[in-house]
Design a protein around this nucleic acid. Structure first.
Length: 129
RNA sequence: GCCGCAGUUUCGGCAUUCGUCCCCGGUGAAAAUCGGGGGAGGAAAGUCCGGACAGCACAGGGCACCGCGCCACCUAACAGAUGGAUUCCGAACUCGUUUCGGGAGAGAUAGUGCCACAGAAAAUAACCGUCACGGUUUCGAUCGGGGCAAGGGUGAAAACGUAAGGUAAGAGCUUACGAAUGGUUGCAGCAAUGCAAUCAUUGGGUAAACCUCGCGGGCUGCAAGGUCAAAUACACUUCGGGGAAAAGCUGCAAAGCUUUCCGUACGGCGGCUCGCUGUACCAACCUGUUCAUCGGGUUCACCGGAGGUGGGUAGACCGCUACAUCUCAGCAGCGAUGCGGGGAGCAGAUAAAUGAAUGCCUGAUCUUUCGACUUGUCGGGGGAAAAACAGAAUCCGGCUUAUGAAACUGCGGCCAUA
RNA sequence: CGGGGUGUAGCGCAGUUGGCUAGCGCGCCACGUUCGGGACGUGGAGGCCGAUGGUUCGAGUCCAUUCACCCCGA
């Protein structure tokens, strides 16, 4: 399990309450082209995933659904390939986390740049733990 | 071969690696895991119409409001489609009641309103004019009450057009020819309507002004609607622990049972037989004992504890993808479409799946180079490059808008060859 | 999924029942005033009313389609 690059339902953030909790009490920072929001808790539940992630793109910046879907797919792919960095650190500290990634740029970036920025964001999150 | 119009179909393929959603099967108590299959569009978009489906409402009728409005036909239905008739506008030529393209649509003779400016007048016509009669007269004309609507000018629009007769002057006043509208009859057509005959009329436009007539519409939408249901709060209730009243019956007494009430007293506010709220009171009673203290006991508005029930929130599930379904040829029909038959199973997510990386192939297009000549086309080589508009959200039928190509079919035109 | 509104000069807005040359405030330009600027005064420019089509003699206004923006409800 430790080396798999899966992305299943438990690792995604869903439910109105958790999302409200993330946006109302989360701490955030900007790292172009993202805004990163996090909420950490110490309860170490064995069954659930170490982190639940929310990926979103404003429909104001991208009025077409095609563009929004494409950006979310690219971001999801980048997170999926690199989430192990975050998971290892969270398991070591016995913590769980709600993570929000908001795309704030107004143009579509290529996959290589998005992946690079996702890695940088995750490293910054780890430093703040 | 090229161009134009209409229609149909398609939008990359292969390999490797890593994933995602659904279905089926295996292993497993489960979590999970393995194998197989499937996974965006012609517009999925806008949400402009019409339905299906669901809940609520519903005697019957009328009014209001909204939509539609030539005829026939198709359809589950439509403001959609098909075929036709009329009329207007535009274009073309062979100048014809021709062809093509694009609109329009009940009623202006039910009533009301409006029609700026100009003009006498914008709808019960009369300014200039014109005509005879009567008066005045400087003999130029002028005044009066009348007739007329030919001519003038205005305007988008002026009260059928032309000719003749007629008259004081004129006028559909009369006649002939013609135009328009309506009725009746005949013929053709299912009908709209067309043609012909005959009679009547000559009444301005506007209903995308109010309106009248005919037809249709109950309202809300899958976040509809249904099932299960955590925590917390609330309501009711059971158990045990501390504390009040009224009436009737029973009991030696507290008390019990039934009914009323749901703490009492005094204030405040309001929607004033009741509710909310502020302050004060925290017990009452019976019995034992010498009053008290203390012991035992009874009741319950209220208080706090444990359990149950309830509506129902978060959440989960159903609705949820099988049919106005797709496809193949046949038959009926001018056609939209229908009929019976063979075959196929074809997305179902929920902060929302259908993706990412690498390599190769085909190559619309772009660029570069070489050659040929009709000097902007053709042919060869190299390089870049899957590409327009765009992402399902209950499901269908249309409409509208966005849109780069490729292939095929039909029709029309031009050129070449036979 | 459903409902509502707006679009008029550089900016913010009027213009209801169709009618003469579409107005108002701020801004802009020129001139005057001042030693100069501001303020003030006078004069002027700037619009085809989001787009297309239609009804009408005539459309910012009426009708249809469409584009863009804003807001609301479950």
């Amino acid at each position: 399990m430790s080396s798999r690059h899966t992305f299943s339902k438990e690792e995604r953030l869903s439910g109105k309450k958790k999302i409200d909790e993330l946006f109302s009490s989360g701490s955030s920072f900007y790292l172009q082209p993202f805004k990163v929001i996090t909420v950490t808790s110490t309860s170490a539940d064995e069954k659930s995933a170490p982190a639940q992630v929310l990926i979103t793109v404003s429909s104001k910046n991208f009025p077409r659904a095609v563009d929004r879907n494409r950006i979310k797919r690219l971001m999801r792919e980048a997170y999926r390939l690199n989430k192990q960095l975050l998971y290892d650190e969270l398991k070591k500290q016995q913590k769980t986390m709600l993570l929000g990634l908001v795309y704030t740029s107004k143009k579509i970036e290529p996959f290589s740049l998005i992946q690079e920025k996702v890695i940088a964001s995750l490293q910054k999150v780890i430093l703040q733990l």
